[in-house]
Design a protein around this nucleic acid. Sequence first.
DNA 1: TATATATGCAACTTTTGAGTTGCGCAAATG
DNA 2: CATTTGCGCAACTCAAAAGTTGCATATATA
Lengths: 105, 105
Amino acid sequence: MKQDIFQAIADPTRRAILTLVAIQALTPNAMAEKFDMTRQAVSKHIKVLHECELIKPEHRGREIYYHFNAKKMQEFDHWLAQFRQSWETQFNQLDQLLSTIKEQK
Amino acid sequence: MKQDIFQAIADPTRRAILTLVAIQALTPNAMAEKFDMTRQAVSKHIKVLHECELIKPEHRGREIYYHFNAKKMQEFDHWLAQFRQSWETQFNQLDQLLSTIKEQK
DNA sequence: TATATATGCAACTTTTGAGTTGCGCAAATG
DNA sequence: CATTTGCGCAACTCAAAAGTTGCATATATA
């Protein structure tokens, strides 16, 4: 099943993983040590993050270092862009003013 | 149960609702007409979006117009900020160059 | 006031997802 | 070459979330 980035960041553990690997690449074991859960549980989160390409594996012998893929994270930024205009213009007072005008019509 | 915004945008229907109300405030019925599901199902999504304050209700007689809350959406922007530096510096070529240098050590 | 409309809430079913245990494989180590 | 270590995959359990039907409430309308 193809994962999407919105679902990927919905989980707090996965967000924590992203924060960690954004600082430096880590192996699954290294990540698991940070969280109070089994390595396999973390491995599943890694799988989700990898499938939607938010992290990239780098094989080194029997270890796998997962790197943060900043480019993919930008997709959020693009999605957010459609709302950016709203929060630049949607001041509370202005919003109320417009509502008042609309009601007077 | 308190909802969080990450989980709120994880659902595609809720993202669609946000896109709609960002353009103009809508009633639950108006939203339901846009999607292939029952009004109650949409109503549940509205509840989630409302609980985490991504939308705000405006009562008008028996109708409820839900407005987009741009301010709340900014919380994503703040979360994304921690990664912004990464995608400004993590050019693919530069990344590869650094890896090469590291391996030569 | 009887009726239709707009909405929210509760109970229920079905699906999804997080976490576990168990296993197999490949690379390092003695 | 046997053993340990790091990892992924599959089967299973359990909890949460998505969607349904049914019902209660409040506002509009005839």
